[in-house]
Amino acid sequence: MTNPIQFLRTVLTVDAVTCLAMGALLVAAAGPLAGLLDLPAALLFEAGLLLFPSAGFMLWAARHTDRLEWPVRAVAWLNLGWTAASFAVIALLMPGLLGTAFIVVQALAVAGLAALEFHGLSLFRRAFA
């Protein structure tokens, strides 16, 4: 059986690292990406900034999964919120094909991480119930 604590720590760490990478990309290249993706540079820049504290919280949660469930649950729900907001951006701003593809791919990746986090929580509950 998979160790649920190690599983959650790994998923949360991957989530945090991808947040940091995406945040760095969006902050550093908001201008060039805006033209390429047909999205406002300010939206990309601010979304990137938002990812840094999110990654910090994920890393903190990864260190506390052995005692606390709520941070993992919060990360998973925030990931689902990010996914929903991503699709709202498509509906509201109607970017071109490349911008839509960029948003869809990252939204599905974030939703996948949320699914893994919820799965890890169910493993955790079964192991320590």
Results as ranks from 00 to 15, higher is better:
Thr83Ile: 03
Val89Pro: 06
Arg126Tyr: 07
Ala85Val: 07
Leu116Arg: 06
Val89Asp: 09
Leu113Ile: 04
Leu68Asn: 07
Leu59Phe: 15
Ala111Phe: 03
Arg63Leu: 14
Leu92Trp: 13
Phe57Arg: 10
Ala115Tyr: 07
Leu98Val: 15
Leu97Gly: 08
Glu69Pro: 02
Glu69Ala: 01
Gly56Ser: 11
Phe118Gly: 00
Leu93His: 11
Phe128Val: 05
Gly99Gln: 07
Ile90Glu: 08
Asn79His: 13
His119Arg: 15
Ala62Lys: 01
Asn79Asp: 14
Ala74Val: 09
Ala74Asp: 07
Ile90Arg: 03
Ser122Pro: 05
Ala114Asp: 14
Asp66Asn: 13
His119Ser: 09
Ala76Ser: 09
Val75Ser: 08
Ala61Glu: 10
Gly56Ala: 07
Ala114Thr: 08
Asp66Tyr: 03
Leu68Ser: 10
Ala62Val: 01
Leu123Cys: 05
Arg73Thr: 05
Trp77Phe: 14
Leu93Pro: 08
Trp70Met: 06
Gly96Trp: 04
Ala114Glu: 11
Ala101Asn: 06
Trp77Cys: 08
Gly112Arg: 06
Ala84Leu: 15
Gly112Trp: 06
Ala111Trp: 05
Leu108His: 10
Ala85Trp: 12
Ala88Asn: 11
Arg125Gln: 14
Leu59Asn: 12
Trp70Arg: 13
Trp60Gly: 01
Leu123Thr: 02
Ile103Phe: 00
Phe87Arg: 07
Val72Thr: 14
Arg73Gln: 06
Met58Lys: 08
Phe102Gly: 00
Ala85Asn: 10
Leu92Gly: 15
Ala88Gln: 08
Val104Ile: 14
Leu80Ala: 04
Glu117Cys: 00
Arg125Ala: 12
Trp70Lys: 06
Leu98Gln: 13
Gly96Pro: 11
Met58Gly: 10
Phe118Tyr: 09
Gly120Tyr: 00
Pro95Glu: 14
Leu108Gln: 13
Ala62His: 02
Ala61His: 04
Arg67Tyr: 08
Arg67Glu: 15
His119Phe: 10
Asp66Phe: 03
Pro95Phe: 01
Ala74Gln: 12
Leu78Lys: 07
Thr65Leu: 01
Ala61Val: 01
Val89Phe: 02
Val104Trp: 01
Asn79Arg: 10
Ala127Phe: 05
Leu121Lys: 03
Arg63Lys: 14
Trp82Glu: 04
Leu121Val: 03
Ala85His: 08
Val75Trp: 05
Leu92Val: 06
Ala114Arg: 11
Ala76Pro: 06
His64Ile: 02
Leu92Met: 15
Val105Tyr: 05
Ala91Val: 10
Leu92His: 12
Arg63Trp: 09
Ala55Gln: 09
Trp70Asp: 11
Leu116Asp: 05
Ala114Pro: 14
Gly99Cys: 04
Gln106Gly: 00
Trp60Ala: 01
Thr65Tyr: 02
Ala127Arg: 15
Thr83Tyr: 07
Ala114Val: 03
Ala109Met: 11
His119Gln: 13
Leu108Asp: 11
Gly120Met: 00
Gly56Cys: 08
Ala107Val: 01
Gly81Met: 09
Ala111Pro: 09
Phe57Ala: 12
Met94Pro: 08
Asp66Leu: 05
Val72Arg: 01
Trp77Gln: 12
Leu80Glu: 14
Leu93Cys: 07
Ala84Lys: 04
Arg73Phe: 03
